[in-house]
């Protein structure tokens, strides 16, 4: 949605996506998202296979909660005024990101759990 927007929207006499700073922001969004998708699917796969997954779950919930929030904040910046309008679906994502990061343990709580596991010597599962 955001990539399409910056490829079409023109500002300052050029398409937004031709600005390097904008490209950088969409790259950060893509990296956050791809990492979130990988750690989430990895943890779900381990659960489905009946393998130990506590460490992977802590990583996935800590990372994905932050990633969704970061991505929606950057998307708001790139959509500008259009993303502020409630007719645009972006606000639905940013509200859900706020809520989902807190539900079933916040990123901070899962990072603490992960750190405790490392401290107690529970290494890679």
């Amino acid at each position: 949605m955001t990539v399409k927007h910056v490829c079409e929207r023109e500002q300052f006499g050029a398409r937004l996506g031709t600005f390097q700073a904008v490209q950088q922001m969409t790259a950060v969004m893509a990296i956050d998202l791809e990492a979130a998708r990988h750690v989430t699917r990895h943890a779900l796969w381990r659960l489905a296979e009946g393998l130990p997954a506590d460490r992977e779950i802590a990583i996935a919930k800590a990372w994905t909660g932050r990633a969704y929030r970061n991505v929606s904040v950057l998307a708001h910046q790139l959509h500008g005024g259009a993303g502020y309008v409630v007719e645009h679906p972006l606000h639905r994502h940013s509200l859900r990101a706020q809520e989902a990061e807190l539900l079933f343990g916040s990123s901070e709580e899962w990072l603490t759990e992960l750190a405790d596991g490392i401290r107690l010597g529970r290494g890679e599962s």
Partner: peptide
Amino acid sequence: LRRRLAMLLCAEMVGGPRRRS
């Protein structure tokens, strides 16, 4: 169970930014 639900929520979150216009 809370861990499993947290992962299902992660799956839902991962879908969010994949929206296409």
